[in-house]
């Protein structure tokens, strides 16, 4: 492998991991800070990706849209569409038991996948959508991927600082209070339902952003790319490994798990092709074992949650246990 080859692979790796880090941040808003069990990440991701793709591709006779709008519009609309889905799913389920939300989110993710798969007029059905533009690709030539990486990192950083600020505000403290004990939060006059809805929608918006970044990076999306368990599951592993309730952990976990995931791909690539497809499933097994091992032996993840009350009170240095009442 040449130096350029290695470098371009690293850029690809860092970009993909960065997109997953955005997803992981989105999940952290919902689960890490508010205890909302969303296992429909793939659905929000898909809605973002498809929204952005439909709005920015050139006009097409075979499916909806092709509006040829700028990527920026697609990006913002992706967040809006995904946030809207979160709102619609949150209203009936957030008053119910937390496991009902889990079942409902996986239901919505499957429904979204079935729709994109079967409605060819909407987004090409099973054949997917190709030719999703990345505006400066032609002008930039070989350095395009560097620029895209910079864009992903910039968005990731912006989201990180915005979330850190928001989650350290009184609003963020209410989210945590609800996670720890919803009755106490309700007794002190907080509208538990409204805060949960805000957390679900905000997380959904961030996941929609990630979908848009993914669509414009790979240029082609199809329903297979949003298989619920794989996309959703790996993000859960990322956040759990990094440490839920910690934005730094969400990002580091994403890069770490994506590195492990990619390295196992190298290993399976060396196998004869007859074995390679089967060995690929062992990669998923490995990730599953990693998740259960972290749950058992290091439930706080690498970083654990940063205990934080207010910036006016000195912070305690170590993360606390992430205990919550079932």
């Amino acid at each position: 492998m040449t130096v350029e080859g290695v470098l371009s692979y690293l850029v690809f790796f860092a970009t993909m991991a960065g997109i997953y880090a955005v997803l992981s941040l989105g999940l952290n808003i919902q689960w890490g800070y508010n205890g909302l069990f969303n296992i429909g990440i793939a659905g929000f991701f898909a809605v973002g990706a498809y929204t952005s793709a439909i709005l920015t591709t050139p006009p097409s006779p075979t499916h909806l849209g092709g509006f040829g709008l700028p990527m920026m519009v697609g990006f913002l609309a992706a967040g809006a569409a995904s946030g809207l889905i979160a709102l619609l799913i949150g209203i009936p389920t957030l008053r119910l038991r937390e496991d009902y939300l889990a079942i409902a989110t996986i239901g919505i993710a499957e429904t979204i996948r079935y729709i994109f798969q079967n409605e060819a007029w909407l987004a090409g059905g099973i054949r997917g959508l190709a030719g999703i533009p990345f505006p400066w690709r032609r002008a930039l030539g070989p350095s395009a991927n560097f620029v895209y990486l910079a864009l992903v990192i910039a968005i990731l950083a912006a989201l990180y600082f915005a979330l850190e600020r928001g989650l350290r505000s009184p609003w963020g403290r209410v989210l945590k209070a609800i996670r720890e004990d919803e009755y106490v939060a309700a007794a002190s006059g907080k509208d538990v339902f409204r805060f949960r809805l805000e957390s679900l929608v905000l997380g959904g918006i961030v996941m929609g952003f990630a979908g848009s970044l993914y669509a414009h990076f790979v240029g082609f999306i199809s329903p297979q790319a949003f298989h619920p368990m794989l996309t959703t599951f790996i993000v859960w592993v990322m956040l759990t490994v990094g440490g839920s309730g910690n934005n730094k952990g969400a990002i580091v976990g994403a890069y770490l798990v994506w590195a492990i995931w990619s390295m196992t791909e190298f290993v399976t690539d060396f196998l004869p092709s007859a074995m390679a497809t089967r060995a690929a499933s062992l990669r998923v097994v490995l990730i599953g074992v990693l998740l259960i091992a972290v749950l058992m032996y290091r439930p706080t993840g690498l970083f654990g949650e940063e205990r934080h009350v207010s910036r006016l009170i000195a912070r305690s240095p170590t993360g606390g246990s992430h205990a919550r009442s079932g």
Binding site: M229, W236, T277, A279, S281, V284, V285, I292, L295, M296
Partner: peptide
Amino acid sequence: PLRSRGSITLLIASVGVALIIRNLIRFVWG
């Protein structure tokens, strides 16, 4: 071992178990 840690931890673990089972099946039977 995870039972004392609440139902949601068990739920996450079961998602892990689901993927392990399915992919072991894929590995053994294709």
